[in-house]
Design a protein around this nucleic acid. Sequence first.
DNA 1: CGAATCACGCTTAAGCGTGATTCGGTGCCTTAAT
Length: 508
Amino acid sequence: MKILNLEKTLQSHFGLSSFRPLQREIIEAVMHEKDVLAMLPTGAGKSLCYQLPTYLKQGSTLIVSPLVSLMEDQVQQLRMIGEKHVIAFNSFLSYRDKRIATHQLSNYKFIFASPEMLQNSFFINALQQLNITLFVVDEAHCISQWGHDFRPDYLRLGEVRQQLGEPTCLALTASATPRVLDDIKERLCLHNPSSFYTNIDRPNIAMLVEKVDSLDDKITKALSYCRVLEGPGIIYFSSRSWCERFTALLEKDKSVAFYHAGMEHSERKLVQQQFINNQLDVICATSAFGMGVNKNNVRYVIHFHYPYQLESYLQEIGRAGRDGEPSVAITLITKGDEQLASSLIHQDLPNENQLLAVLSEINGNASSQLTKERERIYQIQFQLSETGWRFIRYHLREQHVVDENDIIQLFELDELYQYLVNQIIARQKDKQYKLQAMHEWLFNSSECRRAQLVAYFQGELQSKPKYCCDTCQPIPLDEFSSPSNQKPEWGNWLDELKALLLHGHVEA
DNA sequence: CGAATCACGCTTAAGCGTGATTCGGTGCCTTAAT
């Protein structure tokens, strides 16, 4: 079809002369109103895949984005190329701004929103007045990774799409297993989608898993790597307090900061910016850090704690070496790590007692309205986590126990209880299965780690790079060391750490 | 779920046992009006 047309638009709107791999194919499928599921590595130009069709199509494009910061970035990027008809509809807008925006929504070609905002009926009503011709889900693996408990509104996107008249859907992600891809297809109600996958292997990242004898050894190792390896680098932890402690230990030798979700937004933004601008050598972070961070020259990623799934591992190490230069990913493991990883699986969803109690209470209030205030009371009364309550609420609506006007319908207690218990068990089994795969990968040191990782995403390793992984050959870490590195001065970190632990949190 | 730590009571008053408490990732969105 319109080959000239695509090239012309690419040149006129984006100032580019040629497409990167798969971009053309994806755009052509979208232009043919095919649903598309695309797995492209970060930096492969995913945004263009919806931006260009938006210029060629009638109507507007709705982009579902997981983070407000990501929306803001995209909006800014579009404004840079001169696009004015773009809006991020999120909580950064005041009530007044939102009202104005809903009235003028037809002015916008690009509308960014979170899954949560798409549950707002006023917003949906306003969207229904428009001609939405493309429905984009950015970072679509979030549907599977977050939708089942943490952010259940992700599971409602298929319904939202229906409400908008089933526009063409483009789901984009950088890392998804076949199971996750199936989940995305099902949840978004993709009809016979065109699928585009590229290999997830990153040949310039050497992979290394190192067993150490104790936690003390782990700290020593991690500190020494941070001092010796050429930066900048990222260290991932599974707890906020560890991020802060380790930052304090490194502070003397390195320019370092921590990053986790317990910080103020402004501070997070500042730290991220400093890291991107090469003002920091090392960043100590939880899994909160990374999505939407465009930095090419990260040289190493250390996992002080490993994540509970290989999808997260792949995303996290993938933040190294985007410039294609040699980089290294090191995972440090010791006794007791399994416990921390599995604890993260079990803590969020309600236990059986809580579940039974809250369901009885709700049933007792049948035919009254489930107000926000009452939700808050339930959450406190039955000591449910925010995620725990949202999980219950999602299923109450799914099972029509709460109708569209939030009125509670009388229900069969045992039946609903059993249903929810089964849901929770299924969810935990799924997470357990993923953790098990993670453990197999960590502890099976007889097969090539790279091949195992690629196989988990159902790919096949074409060729092994020079520095592959620790099961293939020893990785010479000297090659990844900073040339200017002097012999590091060993402080007495153990005493420092003890002092920190005694005095609780580290002053920022 | 499970370990580490804390609080407390028992007691040949310094240290032990026991039970309670704490700690372990991720982010939208926050009222009524449109």
